[in-house]
């Protein structure tokens, strides 16, 4: 049986893993290569590395970080942040990534999704959507540039378009829940997961095993991603997977 995936995310700034709350207040969490290897050892099904600064000057630092992280990693490895062109994507694949996650650039230039999917395959083209609830309408809006700019685009409509353009997966982050450890946004996740035919990775708000159970059962997520709860040793992935398995969620357990 196909298992649900637990994905460890490394938010990287200038070659170091950091983590913030609601996209702000960053604190240092360690070396990306060491953390990726440790998470893989603990049973993570995939590693995602997001370059959260993604400034032009940092591109070479990022590629070196990707290269170093990929070297000893034999599970799927996604890299995102600042991917604007097919050439950006090519350099990241060459450095050892298996999938590219694109966000702002995909909204600005949706053709980029198709270009990457045609060149590297849909399985390598992930569209990341940062979604925030609009208090007035109750709908979900896609935000870009690390959560700094509104797009006016409905997150669910955008997810469908991304699929049509060739995206192989959607990485869906709830900006309202990010870093809060109050649980995933199951309503948002379900709305997107039920609207597309490609896998949806839920992100933002993981705090305990119950949150993961909810997002798989109620949110219909195919995978769930978390960062801080893994890095700061609050919970090992192996232990989390045992609990989810016991709750009836199919897991790949080394246990």
């Amino acid at each position: 049986m196909l298992t649900k995936r637990i994905i460890a995310c490394l938010d990287v700034d200038a070659g170091r893993v950091v983590k913030g709350i609601r996209f702000l207040n960053l604190k240092d969490a360690g070396d990306p290569a060491e953390l990726a290897a440790a998470h893989s050892e603990a049973g993570a099904d995939e590693i995602v590395l997001l370059d959260i600064s993604a400034t032009h000057e940092n591109r070479n630092t990022l590629l070196e970080t990707v290269r170093r992280t990929a070297r000893q990693l034999f599970i799927p490895f996604t890299v995102g942040g600042g991917v604007r062109t097919l050439e950006d994507a090519g350099a990241i694949f060459d450095a050892g990534a298996d999938k590219i996650s694109m966000n702002s650039a995909a909204i600005a230039t949706p053709d980029l999704i198709t270009e990457i999917a045609n060149r590297f395959g849909s399985q390598a083209a992930i569209v990341a959507i940062d979604a925030k609830r609009d208090e007035k309408t109750g709908g979900f809006e896609a935000w870009v540039q690390g959560g700094r700019r509104q797009t006016g685009q409905n997150a669910i409509t955008w997810a469908r378009q991304a699929e049509d353009r060739g995206a192989g997966e959607i990485l869906l982050t709830s900006m309202d829940r990010d870093g809060t450890e109050q649980g995933f946004d199951c309503e948002l996740t379900k709305a997107v997961a039920d609207s597309v035919r490609i896998p949806v990775i839920a992100s933002g708000g993981a705090g305990n095993a119950q949150h993961f159970t909810e997002v798989f059962k109620e949110g219909h997520a195919d995978a769930a991603l978390a960062a801080s709860i893994f890095h700061f040793g609050l919970r090992s992935i192996a232990e989390l997977k045992q609990q989810l398995q016991a709750a009836g969620i199919p897991m790949r357990c080394a246990c």
Binding site: M1, G168, I198
Partner: peptide, 10 residues
């Protein structure tokens, strides 16, 4: 089923 088939299977 959703396609592509992505993830860990037995």
């Amino acid at each position: 089923v959703k396609s592509p088939h992505v993830g860990w299977n037995q």
